[in-house]
Design a protein around this nucleic acid. Structure first.
Lengths: 217, 217
DNA sequence: ACATATTTTTAGATTTGCCTAAAAATATAA
DNA sequence: TTATATTTTTAGGCAAATCTAAAAATATGT
């Protein structure tokens, strides 16, 4: 696997999660910030290697082998992100670029040990699930806080809006990544909520609830 | 800096430590397991970038800029080796290949934090010194135990031979990286020694003494 | 010092991954 | 349904890093 090949497979994997049916050349080119003609070249090569199925003018879809490679790269990316945040104290929004490089380091044993060192985490610092060693991805995807029902709980795993104003608002309310939020009440007509964070209970608007990602527990 | 460029600079840096005067195309080719013609090409490119001085048919020598790049790569390599051994519990002879990959990750901040995380180590698991962030390499060179005189002491910093048999022999004698060794006696005619390790005193052959690196204290 | 051996460089090709420009296929719309 | 727009592919090229084969420079031995 070359670096370029891995990046193509990863991009296609992500596109398949977002899109129904075959993935177009154009979509891949846009995602990878490259030209459609370059995509055609690479896609033909990956097709020969049986990592994806390519039909001219139709698009591509990953084979089982291709999906496994892609999931492996994503696993590495996310484990390294956990390392960078948990062990090296990077902030969760500084780690993507570095993980983009680290994800291509080739060593099974390294990842096995890194995973163990980190306590086999299930999610990366953005709340995205980490595929297991077989490439299986837990589909416990993040939800918006606004989608949570009364009396349910969620762990804050990220935010949609990330303006300093919003982050400062959250700071003031003691909400950050990892904070447990309990929905005590929800107004039907405007979507506003009463939530509990640690020992404080307070009101939030629908707008706020629509900009916080949580993972239900 | 491309990966190939970094590898050339690193190889030349090592050769300069081992060799007096200019470094020949052939020596570089041999070290890098490539052809002399390829070396000529790359060396011309690095010369244009002012990373080394190249005189046709004469050889090369690193400029200050080139030396700095090389030392930076070596710094990263050795810090990652410490990480792999100290944090991920790799054995010190399993880490070279992985560090060869990790040394090319580009991020100043990452290395700053990694260094801190590891407690700013001075030596890698093989006893080789880690250049500081300015590329300065402490010249506390290692010696062979066989070069140590009677009544002198050394810290074991590595081994020359690394066969399982030899390592197991050392294990049995309780010698590992960091172990203090005192030379109590030395035979002139066969180079054998009596040494003290912790509270044990025992005999070792010249062969053994010639395969243990120590740093005198 | 001169013939031979060795080292180094040049010339020309190859592979990978990308590009531009033009052609071909497919989609859309009046 | 036919013209137009869009998407996708093909064709031809480029840069990086390598290679082989041959030429040029340097070194060596008697």
């Amino acid at each position: 696997m070359t670096l370029a090949e891995e990046n193509y497979l990863k991009a296609i994997f992500h596109l398949e999660l977002e899109t129904a049916g075959e993935i177009s050349t154009n979509a891949i080119a846009e995602r990878m910030d490259t030209k459609p003609s370059s995509v055609t070249d690479m896609v033909q090569k990956l097709s020969e290697k049986k990592l994806l199925i390519y039909k001219r003018y139709k698009g591509v879809s990953l084979t089982e082998a291709g999906r496994k490679v892609a999931a492996g790269v994503i696993r590495k990316h996310r484990l390294w992100e956990v390392f960078l945040v948990e062990k090296l104290n990077f902030h969760w929004d500084e780690v993507h670029e570095i993980a983009e490089q680290l994800e291509h380091i080739q060593s099974e044993e390294l990842i096995t040990r890194l995973d163990q060192f980190l306590g086999s985490p299930d999610f990366d610092p953005h709340g995205d699930p980490i595929p297991d060693k077989h490439g299986v991805l837990k589909r416990t995807e993040k939800k918006l806080l606004s989608e949570i029902e009364k009396n349910q709980q969620g762990i804050c795993v990220g935010v949609k809006e990330s303006s300093p104003e919003f982050l400062q608002y959250l700071d003031k309310k003691k909400v950050s990544i990892g904070t447990k939020i309990t929905v005590l009440g929800k107004e039907f007509f405007d979507g506003s909520m009463i939530i509990q964070v640690f020992d404080d209970q307070f009101f939030i608007s629908k707008t706020v609830a629509e900009n916080i990602y949580v993972q239900t527990i």
